[in-house]
Design a protein around this nucleic acid. Structure first.
Lengths: 221, 221
DNA sequence: GACATTAGTCTCAATCTGAGACTTATTCGC
DNA sequence: GCGAATAAGTCTCAGATTGAGACTAATGTC
């Protein structure tokens, strides 16, 4: 039973619609999500808005993202529609959730993705669904590269993958796969991060390569 | 610019919402989608409905699927929300699309998934998105098994995979992978399909097995 | 009974993978 | 300045995985 739908005085099939964003960034082995304090200072809420007249959903999501971040996310994609009983900060009964990925920028508004218990039920579910969707999409779209700044070290890249996958990867294998996929290009510059040998900087620069279609994987079913 | 939204006289952010189903089945190396003739006998339309008061989206989709098929689909999952300018048979401005998978049953209403040009623009996009989503989900959820009847031969199973992936698979490799994944169980019965050696019948019966986590695949990026 | 047809199996070479050790380059503590 | 600590980047190797293609098995057709 959807409180939102029941509460409204609209005809059945008509609903107050919101567009909600899960803006994700990565830093230091942690994912962060943009959230600010809620309507009446109680709890937190995700950035959200309402589709303008005649505005497509994607365009609306991009607009709200720009309003929130001051820039368009490196990657944005719809996660799905959510309409459960739990309340929405704007009182909408149906929310279309979008994931937006951006490189880290300094801000108070990033919250650790783990500790988002202060979100409302619907928005909390959206965060969970978004993170699951990102993990599932990892191998099909440049999700991880959208989370990093334009130049990054291979260790950073690997750590970002490890964070999203919640498991460790083998260094040599990871780099071998990366090399075989022609995904990155060294910039020629190096970054010295405190102690240890300086790391080569890379840039995401995917190049065409022959389609290596392999058999189906059935082991996750 | 969304005609649907612009046309309506509702306040911004309020929209007529529909739930649209892409009911998919498989037979004989072909995918089929349920569609019937449209509102004024013009063109085709997907089964759709309107969320009931206080009804969750998933529940609504299941209800419409039952109404259409007389039974609950083997698998049902949301594909996403669609709200573009193109018209919807019910005039809704926002449609939440669900994919529903069922084994083949004889009916006039199945249309070849390729030749659905007579659908409206929005619903045509939904079909495309659904098929893409199914292909992407193939390795994470028992998509293919939901398309087949309870008992099937391994050749049928492989052909269904080949249809969804739009490429051939190697017989021995496919069976090896299947065996390693402990996904199916022979029923002990055999089916003689005209000429050729009879095939053993199998049933989908996934068994627990140790998590074989492999490195990331980067070659699809 | 020969042949076409489909199911199911087997072998083998090539490729891919993960473990772990190894080399290189830098900072830190003294 | 020097050795230890630390992190980047490379290498080797054995074992697992893969695809090609041949091979055997069981059935219907002529």
């Amino acid at each position: 039973m959807s409180d939102g739908l029941a509460r409204s005085s609209r005809p059945a099939g008509s609903a107050a619609v919101s567009i909600d964003l899960v803006l994700v960034t990565y830093r230091d082995r942690r994912l962060h999500v943009r959230a600010e304090s809620g309507v009446n200072k109680k709890g937190l809420m995700l950035p959200w808005g309402t589709p303008a007249r005649g505005e497509a959903l994607d365009a609306g999501a991009a607009r709200i993202a720009r309003r929130t971040l001051g820039a368009t996310p490196a990657w944005i994609e719809q996660v799905g529609a959510f309409a459960d009983a739990s309340a929405h900060p704007g009182g909408s009964s149906l929310s279309v959730c979008y994931a937006g990925l951006v490189p880290w920028t300094e801000s108070e508004l990033w919250r650790d993705a783990q500790s988002l218990t202060m979100l409302g039920g619907r928005q909390r579910r959206m965060v969970t669904a978004t993170l699951a969707a990102l993990r599932a999409r990892l191998e099909q779209a440049p999700v991880v590269f959208s989370l990093l700044s334009r130049e990054f070290t291979l260790s950073e890249l690997q750590q970002a993958y490890e964070t999203l996958l919640v498991r460790r990867l083998h260094k040599a294998s990871f780099r071998r796969a990366l090399q075989a996929a022609f995904l990155v290009q060294p910039t020629g510059e190096w970054r010295s991060e405190g102690r240890g040998r300086p790391a080569q900087l890379y840039r995401y620069a995917p190049r065409k390569r022959k389609n290596t279609r392999r058999g189906v994987r059935l082991d996750q079913l």
